[in-house]
Design a binder for these strands. Sequence first.
DNA 1: AAGAATAATGTAAACGTTTACATTGTTCAA
DNA 2: TTGAACAATGTAAACGTTTACATTATTCTT
Lengths: 337, 337
Amino acid sequence: MAGIKDIAKITGLSLATISRVFNESPLVSKKTREIVLKASKKLDYQPNLMASALRSGKSKIIGIIIPELSNPFFSSIINGIEQKANEANYSIIIAQSHESKEKEIKAIQSFIQSKVDGVLLSFTEQTIALNIIKRLNSYNIPVVFFDRTHQLKNTNQIGFDNYKGAFLATEHLINQGCKNIIHIVGNLKMEIHKERKKGYVSALQDYGSFYNEETSIVHLNMNELADSKTIQNLCNDSENPTDGIFAHGDESALYILNILKKIQIDVPKDVKLIGFGNTNFSSLVQPKLSTIDQRNSEMGKLSACMLLEILNSEKLISPKTEILSPKLIIRESSLSQ
Amino acid sequence: MAGIKDIAKITGLSLATISRVFNESPLVSKKTREIVLKASKKLDYQPNLMASALRSGKSKIIGIIIPELSNPFFSSIINGIEQKANEANYSIIIAQSHESKEKEIKAIQSFIQSKVDGVLLSFTEQTIALNIIKRLNSYNIPVVFFDRTHQLKNTNQIGFDNYKGAFLATEHLINQGCKNIIHIVGNLKMEIHKERKKGYVSALQDYGSFYNEETSIVHLNMNELADSKTIQNLCNDSENPTDGIFAHGDESALYILNILKKIQIDVPKDVKLIGFGNTNFSSLVQPKLSTIDQRNSEMGKLSACMLLEILNSEKLISPKTEILSPKLIIRESSLSQ
DNA sequence: AAGAATAATGTAAACGTTTACATTGTTCAA
DNA sequence: TTGAACAATGTAAACGTTTACATTATTCTT
């Protein structure tokens, strides 16, 4: 309820001076600063961020758009973002796109209207990044893309080396003696999953392993019966039975694990399995799941830092792309012996 | 960039009329409405929510405080909240308390300054709800508590019947023939875990089952070696071996599952196990985990609706508490034969 | 046809800050 | 002792809306 005016009244100072105190301006003497602070305590003064934002043009809010909050990958990224944002006294406002371009656009619209200072964005599979950039640019709102990156130059991005991650995973299976490794692919409309597939194929080629575009790439259709038949056929193939599986994510790895169990194929004895993402449950399942760590929280922190840097610097910072390197996590599901 | 003024200029109308159009006031004629909308399209007019909030006192923002975003329970609640909030044209701003009272207070402070219209709050174990209520009340910000509820009258709450959930879980184990059921308790400083314990004890008493405060209640200390020894001792007790385990959460149930596996106790043959929360991975582990569904998304929707109702009604709505009922989900980990 | 009722629009102040510019007070060099 | 330099404070307009109140235009009643 109490505003800067009230403080001015009881201290006998002008609005400007009071305002300067709260903005930590060096233009105010120690003595008056203390007087003001004491008065503001007494009145339980709460600065009105809306008014401040309106006048100054800085809202101290960062907008985040992600596909799905309940995806643990994204929620831990947000953890990282929140930490850095809070340190810098920014609030975060979150919107989910649910992989829908329309919702994404709506979110951006709402962010523009809310006058967010910057946007962190992991776009949907259908998004044309250029449009988004243009839109935000025309309102002078900087944006940093994370996780889902694109080919455009001159944009700020924090990515992850999906290619290398997939390569490491596949290589690991090869090292464990697998002769016929299949890959459960994700949505190939998305760059990240294309990259994972590429990494997988590269590893096989580098090591001269068996690869067949028809049979080595498996699309799940989330119909348990059909899927388990497919897997069964592959694993029981008389000529070239599958003995290694690289799944595009931990969750689908779990799903596969279930299927294998049902058709009585032992992991890791008969088939070795590795996931992707190092989700919190991956060390808690039986057998413990080998996987690729995506360094989620780090990604969050990095993107937040990049955005904050842009927000804090007067002059233009030349855009840059940073790519995080994967870490291979070896647990039980992929180990021979 | 374009504001209401620009629209006024090119249409020759007054600011008031333009404003009325965007606020869907009935006081404006169809003809002028269309003229205004056309002009606003042309200018790509974006209402400045900050200015609007400042003048009207309504920010159209809901603040959410939760302990931990990466806890899937909370992220699905937020999913529910976001859905309802978006429908009503509200943005959500999220802060995590990380179970720290200080961070929680800081978040509330920041919400007050951001002039959120209302707060949805799941408080930390150390929180004294009364203080929070008082603080928000003095700034006229309504609050709805969810999940973690308290005893105070005259507050808005959406809770979950933890007692009944625990009762159902325990009862189910009894029905499956368990004679000696232990309970892995959560943090007993928290009401929800106290209630779960109570429900467990009640079920045992109602059915005249074995219960011993000393041995039936197990606190995990997250030291795998020590914990596995404890569990082993209980399960191999010559007089009264444990044959049923009710864990306070799905994650700890998974943890227990691992321990049991390691000490070669079969689930569900030797010991039947049930968790709490119906987390997304619970149907993907081996054996599939029986659990109690907490109806997370529903809880989110309900709390959002309750808050929105308060925000939309002129007159005071008398505070109410709603308690969601648990659903028993029976899967493999608890089934006999 | 006059006045009442209603509909549509306009005027201008207000929301609580920030900030460019102006003013006053102080210190210090010459 | 003047005035230049600097430090501290003040004045008042501005940010982009909303809204109480005033005004004008239109329709209706009798």
